[in-house]
Amino acid sequence: MSLDSTLDITVERAGVTFAFGVTNPDTEPIDLTFRTGMVADVAVYQDGVEVWRWSDGRMFTQAIETQTLAPGETLVFEANWDDPTPGSYTAEASLAATNVTLVEREPFETP
C-alpha cells in the first residue's frame, strides 16, 4: 500500500505547530493498525541531534486500534512544540502504524 503525506509547519511566537497529513491516494480503502493510542509522532532535530519529541512525556491507551482510510481520505495529526529555542531545525513526522511505514521530514527555523 502507498500513502501520501504532507508536513505543514507553522511557526509562531508561542510555539511551533506541526500538521502531519496522511492521504489514501488509492481507490481502495486502507486499514491502518496501531498498537496504542499513539498514531503518529513528531521529532525535532538540530544538527542531527534530537531536541524534542512529541511522545516524550506522554502515555497512551494500550488497545490495538485499526483505522480505515477511505479512498481520497486524509487524516491529520497535529502536534505543538511550545517555547522553542530560536534556531534551525528539521522536523520528522512518522506514522506509528504497524503495517505501513511513513516518514516526512521538513526543515524550519524559529525566530
Binding site: G37, V39, T66, V76
Partner: peptide
C-alpha cells in the same frame, strides 16, 4: 481529520 491521533478502536 484526526487531531493528535484519533482514538480508534478495532
Amino acid at each position: 481529520a484526526f487531531a493528535l491521533g484519533a482514538g480508534v478502536g478495532s
